[in-house]
């Protein structure tokens, strides 16, 4: 019987299996194994975590395929990798490497300041960042099979993640209370396709899985995002830029599952050593705010 790959159901379904989990940024095989042992549902293979991209500056690009392949060989969980916004050749390469998900990410230096990748052209699924519902729906319209709220990567400051989750959640709730004839204007105002706006209004949720990213540094941050309605969390610099990555990784996994149980989250927070130092988002000059990348 006919076998169909790369359908929306297969791509979105992959993200469904990651729900309730933590996806961790790793820069080498050793970190990937620590993440897997700690219970990560997937790893994001990249050469520099966002905090280092910030500190070192320069153009941030797709990682070396050798580095990605080494991580794929080392762990049994899914391996994701990042392509620059609009850089469809980096995405083609990542697909040919057999990565399980591509993150078209604002953390890397954008390639195209007008267009994102046409993600329908690919068999591999994509996750994209969003700061509001319109942006999320534009990405889904381009074929994204998973959305993550952006936050402000590499800061350890969870305030933007909070803003974006409140924004996306608030806009969804507002749509559900509208009359059908008001949805046309809502679609116009949020610059999103009407059909997707109508679907969100009817279902009260995005048609794809919604994770949170950007600035999550503690088990409490992870639980906060889950209580805000995230399906799971991405932790970038927060783990491997901390004093005791092994314990912190495992603590964030526990807090993501038992996000509604303050005792578990509290116990997980004990004795983790130093958290990443971090930067207050408010102190970042505008050109260094990654979450403003994406159109």
């Amino acid at each position: 019987m006919a076998q169909e790959s790369g359908t929306s159901r297969v791509k979105r379904g992959m993200a469904e299996m990651l729900k309730g989990g933590v996806i961790m940024d790793v820069v080498n095989v050793e970190q990937a194994k620590i993440a897997e042992d700690a219970g990560a549902v997937a790893v994001m293979a990249l050469e520099r975590v966002p905090a280092d991209i910030r500190a070192q500056g320069g153009v941030a690009r797709m990682s070396d395929p050798d580095m990605i392949a080494a991580i794929q060989a080392a762990v049994s969980i899914p391996v994701m990798a990042k392509a620059r916004i609009g850089h469809f050749v980096e995405a083609q390469i990542l697909q040919s490497l057999g990565v399980d998900y591509i993150d078209e990410s604002e953390v890397l230096t954008p390639t195209d300041y007008t267009n994102h990748i046409n993600k329908w052209d690919f068999t591999v699924p994509f996750v994209c960042g969003a700061t509001n519902l319109g942006e999320a729906l534009r990405r889904i319209n381009e074929g994204a099979a998973m959305i993550r709220s952006k936050g402000e990567a590499g800061t350890g400051d969870v305030s933007n993640a909070m803003t974006h989750m409140r924004q996306i959640g608030g806009e969804i709730r507002r749509l559900t209370s509208m009359r059908e004839d008001e949805l046309y204007v809502a679609a116009k105002e949020m610059q999103a396709p009407y059909d997707l706006v109508k679907e969100v209004a009817a279902n009260g949720k995005l048609p794809v899985v919604l994770f949170t990213a950007g600035g999550i540094a503690t088990p409490a941050d992870a639980a906060l995002m889950m209580q805000m309605g995230a399906d799971g969390v991405f932790i970038g610099s927060g783990i491997f830029k901390s004093g005791d990555p092994k314990r912190r990784a495992s603590a964030c996994v526990k807090a993501t599952t038992f996000f509604n149980d303050p005792k578990v989250v509290g116990d997980a927070s004990r004795g983790l050593g130093e958290a990443m130092v971090g930067i207050n988002v408010a102190d970042l000059p505008a050109p260094h705010r990654l979450s403003e990348r994406g159109w």
Binding site: M1, A2, Q3, E4, S5, G6, T7, R9, V10, G13, M14, S76, P78, Q95, G98, V99, D100, Y101, T123, V124, P125
Partner: peptide, 15 residues
């Protein structure tokens, strides 16, 4: 585990 391959090999069909 992962016998059918990575995500690019994932699929749907009638059985």
């Amino acid at each position: 585990r992962n016998a059918f391959g990575r995500q690019v090999d994932s699929f749907e069909t009638d059985i």
